[in-house]
């Protein structure tokens, strides 16, 4: 059994014209694996992520996280499940700008009413790991985007979630910060063994994954595994994308 099991997942949005956003997706992510999901805009990758992050409910099919089906839980139970088992990293950081960086990071722990000592220890450990010790007492609008995203990663991992979900974490960052953030995620994956699922259309970010899954028009299209060399993997991703979308020049090679 994998950490994340997706079985025959479909999502239909009902409206004047029903749209099938996802169709019959099967995907398994093993414990400790770092998987990227890629696809063009509108391919359904964000829908997939929303299902996994329990924010949206599937039309049919099943999702098991750590052998639990979150979509069968009650609302309050579900909130608790998200809080304990999942960690989120978003494109626009979603840090609360009324709180300091440190307060933002410990937020999941305060909700769990952990002891102050435990919070301080964990905060120190995670801040050191991500290199954000010196900005802990700053406010979110006083630090750079890269630092903000690292703070967001710290918040997403401080409670040691079983699954870390990242939605375009490098989408709002420059290439240097992107690289830095991805290195941090890789490091957390390696040292803590946290299972990660990353949705992105940035091939550079995807190249840090162990495996990249491609979605096209709501269906699984292909997947490629990373070998020893990240550079090679990056090239493979670019090739795959250009094959998928046709316009290779859109997918910048500038960042290489």
């Amino acid at each position: 059994m994998g950490m994340l099991e997706i079985q025959k997942l479909s999502k239909i949005y009902n409206g004047k014209v029903s749209t099938r956003a996802l169709n019959n997706i099967d995907l398994t992510i093993e414990q400790g694996e770092f998987v990227g999901i890629m696809g063009a805009s509108g391919s359904g990758k964000t829908t997939l992520l929303n299902m996994v992050s329990t924010i949206d409910t599937p039309s049919s099919g099943k999702i098991l996280i750590n052998n639990q089906n979150p979509h069968q839980m009650k609302k309050n139970q579900l909130a608790q499940f998200r809080r304990r088992q999942l960690g989120f990293v978003f494109q626009d950081f979603n840090l609360l700008d009324t709180l300091t960086i440190a307060e933002n990071i410990v937020l999941p722990l305060t909700l769990e009413k952990k002891s102050l000592k435990e919070m301080d220890e964990k905060l120190k450990a995670v801040a050191e790991k991500l290199g954000i010790v010196e900005i802990l007492n700053k406010r979110t609008y006083e630090v750079s985007g890269g630092q903000r995203q690292r703070a967001a990663i710290a918040r997403a991992t401080i409670h040691s979630p079983v699954l870390l979900l990242a939605d375009e974490p490098t989408g709002a960052l420059d290439s240097k910060s992107s690289r830095n953030v991805m290195e941090m995620m890789e490091k957390i994956n390696q040292t803590d063994g946290t299972t990660m699922m990353l949705v992105t259309h940035d091939p550079l970010a995807a190249s840090y994954c162990h495996r990249v899954v491609f979605i096209k028009d709501g269906e699984l299209y292909n997947e490629i595994h990373r070998g020893q060399n990240r550079q090679e993997f990056f090239q493979e991703i670019i090739d795959m994308l250009s094959f998928l979308g046709g316009n290779a020049h859109e997918l910048s090679a500038v960042r290489v």
Partner: peptide, 15 residues
């Protein structure tokens, strides 16, 4: 927005 973000993180309705 504030509570939406928090709720994604797992703030329950009761809280």
């Amino acid at each position: 927005r504030y509570y939406h973000e928090l709720s994604k993180m797992g703030l329950s309705q009761k809280e």
